[in-house]
Every structure is written in C-alpha cells, then in structure tokens.
Design a protein around this nucleic acid. Sequence first.
DNA 1: TTGAAAGCGCTAACAA
DNA 2: TTGTTAGCGCTTTCAA
Lengths: 347, 347
Amino acid sequence: MPNGGVVKSTRRVTIRDVARRAGVSVQTVSRVLNDHPDVSDATRARVQRAIAELHYQPSAIARSLITRSSGVLGVVASGFQFFGPARLLAGIERQATELGWQLMLRVADPSTPEEYDRIAAALIAQHVEGVIWAYPELSSERERAFRAQVETHAPIVFLSMEANPGDAVLSIENRLGARLAVEHLIERGRRHIGIITGPLNLWSAHQRKLGWQDALASAGLPCTELQVIEGDWSAESGCRGLRQLIEQYPRLDAVFASNDQMALGVLHAAHQLGLTVPRDLSVVGFDNVPESACFIPPLTTVHHDLFALGQLAVREMHRVIQARRAGKPAVVSPLMLRPHLIVRESS
Amino acid sequence: MPNGGVVKSTRRVTIRDVARRAGVSVQTVSRVLNDHPDVSDATRARVQRAIAELHYQPSAIARSLITRSSGVLGVVASGFQFFGPARLLAGIERQATELGWQLMLRVADPSTPEEYDRIAAALIAQHVEGVIWAYPELSSERERAFRAQVETHAPIVFLSMEANPGDAVLSIENRLGARLAVEHLIERGRRHIGIITGPLNLWSAHQRKLGWQDALASAGLPCTELQVIEGDWSAESGCRGLRQLIEQYPRLDAVFASNDQMALGVLHAAHQLGLTVPRDLSVVGFDNVPESACFIPPLTTVHHDLFALGQLAVREMHRVIQARRAGKPAVVSPLMLRPHLIVRESS
DNA sequence: TTGAAAGCGCTAACAA
DNA sequence: TTGTTAGCGCTTTCAA
C-alpha cells in the first residue's frame, strides 16, 4: 500500500538506545561516533552494529548545543531567477557541501525594512557560524545595522557589494569589466556608445556604469546622461531601453548592455527597427550566460566567474571559522576577481 | 577602524542572563518570549527591557531540542542555473519565509550514489520537520532508499517527479503541455514535427516526449525515432540538435524544443542554415522564460508556473506538519498544475 | 579502556 | 502570577 506522506510519530532513537542495545555506556557510544581512539575494537564493533540495527542518526542539534559549533552557514541571497545570483549560490552550495557545512538559506526582500532584523535574528537563532551576504545592494544604514547585530555572533562575508576599506568583501571587478567592453567598442571604431544599466541602487550596476564612463572619458568621446537608460536586468527593459536611447540620442552606433538579458532585448529591438547588428549597431553584454553564444548574432560579452566567487567565499569563511576555533583572530581577505572579454559577432 | 571579519568569542547571552538582569526566574522570561498570557504587564516590560539591553537572541536550537520541533524544512534541489529549478526554489523560499519556516538547502548531485544517504543523514541530523524533494530524476532504487530513511522522521513532498499512485507528488502536467505545443504546430499545417528532448532520465523530459508522441499519434502523423534528438537543456544542444535532426529527417518542417534554451539554439541554427522561422520551420519551446518574448522571432512556448508550485509544496508541507503536531495523521495531496500555450511569432 | 556526573539553553509540568 | 524541577540528546570533564 502506498502511503505518501503518512506521518508517524515515533520517538527519535537516541544515543541511550544505542548504548543500551550495545551494553555499554552512553559515553562509549559517543566515543565511537566521534572516532576517539580509546575504544577497543570489539566494543566499537558492537556499538556500530547497534547503530546500524536501530538506524540511529545522531542529532546535530544536540551536539551543537554543547560543542558550540553548529556546522551551519547562513546565506542571504537575492533573486536567483538571474544567472549571476544562481551561479553564486551554486558555487556556495558546492563548496559548503565539500567542506561539510550545512546551509541555511534566506532570500532578501528589499521591499521591507525590518527584513534585515528578522533575517539576522533568524540566523543567530539557528547558531550559524558564519554568514555569506550575497545580496548586492549598495551598503546602507540598514545593512550596517545588520552587520552590527550579526557580527558579535558570527563573521560575515559580503559578495559583490560596495566595499569600504577593510570590509570583508569578495567581488568581481565590475568596473574593469565594463571598461573592457566599452574599450572594445571604441577599438572597433564606435564613437557614440550608449549604456543600458541595471538598477542603479545596486552596487554592481553602478560600477558597470562607471566603467563605461571611464572608457569614454579616456578616449575623449561623448559621455552624457542622454546616452544612459536605467534598465532592470530584464530582456524587456533592454528592448525598451534601445528604443528610448535612439530617440534621445539618435547618433547612437553602439550599446553596452549591463547584462546579457538586456543585450538580448537590445538585439531584438534592433531587429525590429531594421538595424543590422553589428553593421548599424554594435552590442556588448555582460555575464556571458551560456545562451549568449546562441543569440542572433552571437553576443560579445564580459565573462566572469561567480561560481568560483561563491566557492571562494565559503573557503574564506571556513578558514576564518577554523582560526576562531583555534582561538586565533582572523580576517576575511578582500578580493576582486578579474573578468575578461569574449568577442563574438555582435560587435 | 574597520575590522571586517574580526572574530570575537563572547559567550552567548542566555535566558538566565536576562532573568538575572530583570530580577525574575528563567521561566518568566520564557513566558514573555512565547507570549504566554500569565505575565503581569510590569514584569513583561521589565523582561523586555532586559532583553533589549542585553541584545538577547533566543536559541532556536535549544528550543527545538525540547519542543521537538525545529521549524526547519529541508530542500533538496537540482542545478538552478536553469529557469525552472530557480523559480521552484524561489517559490519555496518565499512561502517558507511567509509561514515562518527556515530552509536547509542541499543540491543533489546525481554523479555520486552515496549522496542520497548523506543528504538524508544530514537533514535528519538537523531535525528537519519536512523535506521538499525538488530534484526531478526518474524514481529509482536509490530514491526509494532515501524515502525509507527520511520518512520515519519527516514527511516528504516530491516535486516534478514520476508519480506512483498515492505518492506525495506535486507537479506540472508536462505531458499535456507538450501535447498542446505539438497540436498547435499541427493546426498551423505542419506535418513533419521533430523534437529535441531534455535528458531522458529526467521524468519531466520523458513526459514531454510522450506528449509530443500523443499529439502526432492522434493526428496520424509520422512519429519515428528519426524525429528525436536528446538534448541536455542547453542552447548549444538545441543548436546541434537541429542540425542532426535535419540531417536524419530532411522533411522536417517544425521542431518542438523541450525547453526555451534549446529552442533558442534551434532558432540560432535555423538562422545559420538560412531557414526563416516560421516560414521554413516552426519552433515551439517550453517554460516561457521571460527572455523568450525577445527571441528572434519571439518564441511560441508553453507557460507553467513553477514558482506557484514551490509555494504550494510548502503550504502542503505546512498543513501536514500542523496536523501531525495536533496528533492527526495527514497526507500530502498529489496535484498537477496545468500549463498553457503562449502563441508568439515562431510558429 | 570505560563509566558517572554535569550541563549546553531552553520549555513542560507542576507547585506555590 | 510566578518559581522550581526535570530533561530534550549530546559531549566534556573527571574518576575508575
């Protein structure tokens, strides 16, 4: 008989049950569980048999209460319908699992102000030993309050955020990446280069805009707000963005879209407007999502490795926590990963 | 002085510290924390002040040890670089947060066989009260072992999986969705309709192939293995897929791609081969990723709401757990969400 | 090599 | 309305 979801309320098998069954003390079972050397082979075997027979599973919760280490990291992420955040989270998860950490996941919702407090409280309540903050908002009053609340309990690593000197931030050189993209357009002879940015309250979006300015400024090319449209990362906003851009800046001959989705929208709008890419308009994106090689035409874009960044964050966290356990103070080393340009046919 | 990541090892503030400061018993503090009525307003105020002054944060861990309810759900997800899994996880997270559940996240890695055991053990160790299995593999021996191991501790909800009668499965009617897509192509006068499937060891991919067969069979149209290419969900595999399909089945006049990424690859390959979509070749996708409206041409595709499915899963889990706490047996009700067709210009 | 006692931080059950 | 006692499942002393 199938019984999907039928609930049984059996009492949890505890270390005492195992001890009783194996005819030893609770302490001896604990020694076996934790691979302590001072157990005779015979006893160890008996205990292990009892564990198997009873399907005993130790309680991480009870253990963490006494050892004061939960083996859990908190992760505060942002909407992972986008490629970047999803890759970041994947990298975090992979490395965490490899190092034996469990992950407590929260998604930050910028719409509610008290959310920060609630997240902090929840993570502290769960005794997380470290927090990975993967929500790329510009640092704000609220975020500082979050830090203050959490940092007395557990170290924090910030990913892809605005870094104040000394902050524990791991990130991508967004500004450099954008500059590479725009310099490439300039090399190809483009002079009137617009940008469709991400939401400018996000640090990464802001940085990419600065990179665009850097490149134009050092080439002595026009760089006005007429060349700027703020998008929301979506393809649809890229589509709208190009139309507006052409309207307010008709000489446009190239666009830097701050992510690949918006670049897709630009390609689409260009096609609708009868513009041939790259002849009439060059387009460069950012992210190098796997699909961008199959855009029409294949997209020139900036590659960066957020999976690696996520892994790195966990490794840093791990190192800091290990040091703390050994009683040594430790600091997360800030780090910026360098992106690079992938040239395809859209430029 | 910035001190990003500097570690302090202050002892945790406990309920006893609060009690001492407020001049009451530990029990009274507990009552305040849990909103019990039998506390005088004066006492309550004193306790709350002490809590605020000491920045006390209750320990969910200690609490769950005694109450036998952790407030944590386990989630086993698959690679969320794809739109579907990401939306699913987002829906799960949103609803979990709304109902006050914490989420323990694991990503299943099909490459290692013992992985199932390890995941089960880890979740049980963390006292999860329910498990949401969002990894859409065909049900297997291993998965049954996972069930057996977990289900004595906590109910499981399966998402987007093969359902045996009575299983606690919530899903999308993949087969129906695919049939809708292919019937649409037939209505448009297409007779030689190929398919690019997802990895056929995944239930959802298999179902979509069956839906394709259903439509062709009831229309009396050719339906052979020559019309089938197995892809891997990636755009690149869609691109390769179309080339192979045309080679082994030259009369091809339409393609059903089992997700939108692969459909993008098909559009790309068609463009390279000088085929005009939809004149020479009609294309339909599956998923309705936001970008598909900006493909060239905009993609006809099957819409389904995995975000809603994720929310639903948590609500079902919640209901079952609540019932269990009340001592009543409860079962997750199986459910299939109906997808629908979005007609755009690629067909 | 093994076991007994204490206690991590909290709440349930009872008593006052 | 408040406090006392016991104990959730485990590991860390310490003693045998």
